[in-house]
Structure formats: C-alpha cells, structure tokens
Simulated assay, not measured.
Amino acid sequence: MRFASLGSGSEGNGLVVEAGGTRVLMDCGFGLADSVARLARLGLRPDELAGIVVTHEHSDHIGGVGRLARKHRLPVWLTAGTCAMAQDLDGVPVQVIDSHAPFAVGDLEIQPYPVPHDAREPVQYVFGDGDRRLGVLTDTGCSTPHIEAMLAGVDALVLECNHDAAMLENGPYPASLKRRVGGRFGHLENGQAAALLARLKHAKLRCVMAAHVSKTNNTAALARRALAQALDCADADVPVACQAAGFDWIEI
C-alpha cells in the first residue's frame, strides 16, 4: 500500500492511495489540465484511477472533481450533504455514502468518518488494504473522541497543520476570517495537531505527514517542529506536503 499527494493547501488538494491494482483519488481541487499533469508526475494517467472520494464541497477539494470525472468516466463517492452542495457533478456517476459506513473499492477498504468543519456533511477517510491503514485528517477545527477512535492504530497519518496561532492572530486576515479559521469548525492549528498526534502515537506508526499548511499563517518549519516534538524526533524527519508539488509516493 502506498500514497502520494498532488498538492496540499488552500489552492487545491488531492491525494492518491494505492493498494494492489486499485488507485483512488481523494479530492481534486485543481483544473483539468493541472490535475492530469500532477497525476503524470506520479506516473499515473486519470484512466488508471478507480474513482474519486470527496471530503466536502469547498472548492479547494471538489473544484476539479466534476471535470476530471466526466472526462475520464470516473465514479465519485461523497456524502448526501456534500452532494447537495456540489456545483459541477452533472453527468458524473455519483455514489452517495454513509458518513459512518465503510465501503470497498477494488483492493481498498475505505472508512469515512465525520469531522467538525464549516461544510454541509464533511468527512475524512481511513484507507486500508487488510494489512496496513492510512489515516487522513485535514479540514477540521478540532479533534473529537470519534476522530481519535477512527485514527487509533493507523500505520501512516496525513495530518493538518494549517496555521500557527500567533501568526494567525497577528496576520493580515480580517477578524471574521481569523475567527472562522481558528474556530472549532475551521482548521487545526500546529499545537492542536501536535497534541492529537501525541495521543495517537504508537510503535507501529511509520509516517506522519504535515498537510494543508497555510502559506499566510504558517511555515513548514513551524509545522515540522510541532509534530517532531510530539513524535520525539528531529524536525527533518517530519515531511510536509506542499502546495506546488504535494509529495511523492510513500509506501507503508
């Protein structure tokens, strides 16, 4: 089982997860040509995807889903709330999922789980192949006992480190946007992410990737430092997903 990112941040997100002969794209916030180019960087064509799973309706996650799915006849899985809010899914084979019920796509078992975020029915996902499990948690304003139960025991984790609290407070955003980003339905701050990671840390956790790092209210160095302290490792040992290039394949 392996995973890679097309890019991560407020300008577009996409994560590919592969097990056996199955490859699934989680979210697509990029234009059609850009999505194809980013997939090619990972050695993939769109028609090699089994489909797209969507977390929520914000444009940096769903903006490119309709065009990519229509062009390459890809099925799309998403919650009823996300489907109701989606703007560009005409002609797309949509499969509505229960936010608590696992489903299978080829060699992958996919477990959605709800998160607190300012969207209609947002979810994140845990991907498994029967042996290894990858947890993904971004676009949540806080952790919950259910989130931590879903991510317990994962072998790898893609974890939001959206902002640094001091940078957000002293930064250029208007007060209303600062409250939204920093609120319990916004995005995880470095310290929140580190505290969550400390509770999830276990001996088999092979890789933790910092993701959805704000280019205005955070730095890769601050995100690395926060997670490294939780893992008791060197800052350089914590990879960070970037907006422009995401990250290359990681095997677990």
Rank of each mutant, 00 (worst) to 15 (best):
H72V: 10
M150H: 10
P172A: 04
C207F: 11
P145K: 10
V54N: 07
C233S: 13
E121Q: 15
R67S: 15
Q243D: 06
V65W: 04
G64M: 10
L49C: 12
F247G: 06
A50Q: 09
V105N: 03
H61Q: 10
S59A: 15
H202T: 07
E189G: 10
A203I: 08
F247E: 12
R67A: 15
L227D: 02
L159W: 00
H212E: 09
G64E: 07
A193Q: 01
A210K: 03
A33H: 14
C142G: 00
A236P: 03
E251M: 04
V181H: 00
L32T: 07
R23L: 05
A245V: 11
R225G: 05
V123D: 04
L137W: 01
G141D: 03
L39C: 10
D248W: 00
T79V: 13
H61T: 08
D232L: 12
D27Q: 11
R2P: 06
L15E: 04
K204M: 05
P174R: 11
I62V: 14
A245F: 13
D34E: 15
G141T: 10
V76I: 11
V126T: 11
V158S: 00
H117T: 11
T82G: 04
D98K: 10
H56C: 12
A166C: 04
R23Y: 05
A228V: 12
D164Q: 02
L157M: 07
M209G: 01
V208D: 01
E11G: 08
A230P: 05
E189T: 05
L168V: 07
G64L: 08
R224N: 06
S5L: 07
S10E: 10
F185Q: 13
E48F: 07
G91E: 05
R38Q: 09
L200D: 02
E148D: 11
A152H: 11
A236F: 02
T138E: 00
D248M: 09
G91F: 08
G91P: 01
N13Y: 06
I52F: 07
L222I: 01
F3M: 05
H146S: 13
M26H: 13
A211N: 04
G91N: 08
S35V: 09
P114A: 13
A4N: 05
G21F: 00
L159P: 02
L108E: 00
P239A: 02
A4F: 07
G153Y: 04
I52P: 09
H72E: 12
P172M: 06
M167K: 11
P75E: 08
